[in-house]
């Protein structure tokens, strides 16, 4: 079931991950890193980019080998591929910044267990060609990164009065410590989901005006 890689379809593969099927705000996947390491914008961005890399690289490899891997061992193969790229990211981040590695802690290794990645491998990359798989992974990864960044930005601004470590609010601002704690992750995620769903509902109502008359 090879999908023809026309430009229009390719663009669609990319954009669906950013908005219509956003991994965090619509599919609600990968919650563990999304909640745990979105306490500052920097951590959120790093985690998002790390996931983007692992997703893209493993999607590409899995798409390439999809014809030679028998279905009985496909999950084992996916995990092997994903774990490899996670290990690469882990070493890469250590080489770039030890502080960042310390801040992200075990959550880098836990990218392996991010259901988003295995989900894309099984649902998309194993059935589509290299081009489509790459676009899908880039879109989903970008969507994940944007979602984490929006969580991280809100949490860092409210929780510490800074963004990417730079002060954005007056020094007299009283930080909301709860935003840096795990419960702040849940609160912020709930807030964003509220915004996202309200927006989607409004759009759905606008595109189908007759549906509005249905009594609730």
């Amino acid at each position: 079931m090879e999908a023809p890689d026309t430009t229009a379809m390719g663009a669609e593969e990319f954009w669906k991950g950013l908005w219509k099927e956003n991994p965090v705000f619509v599919q609600v996947l990968g919650m563990c890193p999304a909640l745990a390491v979105s306490n500052t914008a920097r951590n959120a961005l790093a985690m998002g980019l790390a996931t983007l890399f692992v997703l893209t690289a493993s999607n590409a490899v899995i798409s390439l080998v999809r014809h030679v891997v028998p279905k009985q061992v496909r999950i084992a193969t996916y995990i092997l591929v994903i774990a490899t790229f996670v290990t690469l990211v882990d070493m890469g981040i250590q080489a770039i910044s030890l502080d960042l590695h310390k801040a992200l802690g075990a959550f880098i290794s836990l990218i392996v267990a991010n259901c988003l990645i295995l989900g894309r491998a099984e649902a998309f990359a194993s059935r589509h060609g290299l081009g489509a798989s790459l676009l899908d992974a880039l879109g989903m990864g970008a969507g994940f990164t944007v979602a984490l960044l929006s969580l991280g930005a809100v949490r860092e601004i409210l929780g510490a009065g800074t963004l990417f470590g730079l002060p954005v609010l007056p020094a007299a601002f009283e930080p909301w410590v709860v935003m840096l704690l795990p419960s702040g992750g849940f609160l912020t995620l709930a807030g964003w989901l509220l915004v996202f769903n309200a927006f989607e509902q409004r759009r759905a109502r606008a595109s189908a005006p007759e549906a509005r008359e249905v009594p609730g």
């Binding site: 080998v65 092997l80 490899t84 290990t87 070493m91 030890l98």
Partner: peptide, 27 residues
Amino acid sequence: MLRAMVGVGLLCGILIATTFLATRPTI
């Protein structure tokens, strides 16, 4: 099955080993 697993495993091993050697001095 054997071919796929060993092949992918080998590929992954090479990737990890290369990156390890490349990043170790920096780390």
